[in-house]
């Protein structure tokens, strides 16, 4: 869970008040650490949408859009890529190994919440 969003008035409000983005970006985390320990899910998801954004054609794209899929199914897929080198994968296993399991779970949840 992302916590610490109950601080109310924060400087962040100047630019991000009312925006889900503030939470997703981890701006609510307490300052004082050089870098917050976790990568915000918004940053992680930004990487994914370079290939897996909205459907752009009628045909089935070879790279599926991720929005609106079941979180558990997505997570299972991602874990599969991270753990082995499945024949169906071209480049996913190269990238997925770099995420922690927690990050994969956050990504799966994030995309499950997006509208298709």
């Amino acid at each position: 869970m992302r916590t610490g969003n109950s601080g109310g008035q924060r400087a962040a409000a100047a630019t991000t008040e009312g925006a889900l983005g503030a939470v997703a970006l981890g701006l609510a985390l307490l300052p004082g650490v050089a870098f917050a320990e976790r990568v915000p899910v918004a940053t992680l998801a930004h990487g994914c949408i370079a290939c897996h954004g909205a459907a752009t054609t009628d045909r089935d794209p070879s790279i599926p859009p991720l929005a609106g899929h079941d979180a558990d199914v997505l997570l299972q897929l991602l874990r599969g890529y991270a753990e082995e080198d499945p024949a169906e994968s071209t480049s996913m296993h190269r990238l997925t190994r770099g995420y922690s399991d927690q990050e994969l779970a956050e990504l799966a949840r994030h995309f499950a919440e997006q509208e298709q």
Partner: peptide, 21 residues
Amino acid sequence: AAAVLASLAGREPPEPAWLNT
């Protein structure tokens, strides 16, 4: 973009992660 927003809010930048293909 995330770092700029954190900076505007007077916060430390969030941990980064980048991809390439």
